[in-house]
Design a protein around this nucleic acid. Structure first.
Length: 284
DNA sequence: CTATGAACCTGACAGC
DNA sequence: TGCTGTCAGGTTCATA
């Protein structure tokens, strides 16, 4: 569940269902998602057992659950991770990797399910406020403390294309491949235009576009093309119906009718309108 | 310091 | 029915 709106949907679900319930057992079914915990899966489980989540927080695409001890459980969903709250008798998911059982009358379990295992969980000592691992992650554009001026400054100093800048989580967090393309379409800016050659007004439009699209997506439970991207209850969001360019190669731009173009970029795809988002001239 | 591209994984799907 | 190649909402690490 990759980008900010999807991760925020999960955060809210965790906040509603797993706080103030003492953990009685942590079962690591595959070591890979816990690889960042260098002391190993058994130590990971022991560090959490007996403790209680007190909150659910998010920075960009990272989630963490502070414990009453001041430590925290840190998680990232990667490309295919899910956090599910499931009844105890629900059959194990095919890609179930870590299971948390809780004490008390509510027998529902927290399950970390991840097909590709690019995501993971780790124990963050003293990480209740902000895990040390996240020191380099910028705030996201929906965060009230996001620094617009700092973003504009960094973008204007960079020779990288603006899409690359949007995907750089140390400059602006929470934006991924879908919402970067959507924000650029809203702003009418081509993703390969260099940051240092964009006008401030264009950068401001890109930032506003990111806020607009991610806020709207959040209102619809996020974007899901398939069952891989679901909330804590296994339900899909439906923002995919509102996407203007992402995944719409060949279909007409809703503003001008020009067929949406797809291009290869950083080993993935970029979608844009050739008319509304003219490619930069010259080198690149 | 910045800027790329490959690597990390599994599975679905298209084409032969 | 295979097989091969491509693609997928991300991050990190090694190399220029």
């Amino acid at each position: 569940m990759p980008e900010l709106p999807e991760v925020e949907v999960v955060r809210r679900g965790l906040e509603a269902h797993v706080l103030d319930r003492p953990i009685v057992e942590v079962e690591v079914l595959h070591p890979r998602p816990v690889r960042r915990h260098l002391a190993g899966p058994a130590d990971f489980a022991a560090a959490l057992t007996g403790h209680t989540f007190t909150a659910a927080r998010r920075r960009g695409k990272y989630l963490w659950l502070p414990l009453e001890t001041g430590d925290a459980l840190l998680g990232h969903l990667g490309m295919s991770g899910q956090m599910l709250v499931q009844p105890a008798d629900a059959p194990d998911e095919r890609h179930l990797r870590v299971r948390f059982r809780f004490e008390g009358p509510d027998a529902r379990q927290l399950r970390f399910v991840d097909q590709r295992m690019f995501g993971g969980l780790s124990f963050a000592p003293g990480g209740a406020e902000l895990p040390a691992e996240l020191a380099h992650i910028a705030r996201d554009p929906l965060d009230p403390e996001f620094d617009d001026a700092a973003f504009l400054r960094r973008a204007r100093r960079s020779a990288s294309g603006i899409k690359r800048i949007l995907l750089n989580q140390s400059v602006i967090s929470g934006v991924g491949n879908i919402y970067a393309d959507e924000a650029l379409w809203l702003a009418g800016v081509h993703g390969e235009r260099r940051g240092d050659r964009l006008r401030v007004v264009d950068l401001e439009r890109v930032l506003a576009g990111a806020r607009t699209v991610m806020t709207a997506a959040l209102g619809q439970g996020g974007t899901s093309f398939d069952a891989l991207y679901v909330n804590v209850n296994g339900e899909s969001g439906y923002f995919d119906r509102s996407l203007e360019v992402y995944g719409r190669e060949g279909q007409p731009c809703s503003r001008c009718g020009t067929p949406v173009r797809r291009a290869s970029f950083m080993n993935r795809s970029s979608f844009s309108c050739p008319t509304c988002q003219p490619a930069p001239r010259g080198a690149r």
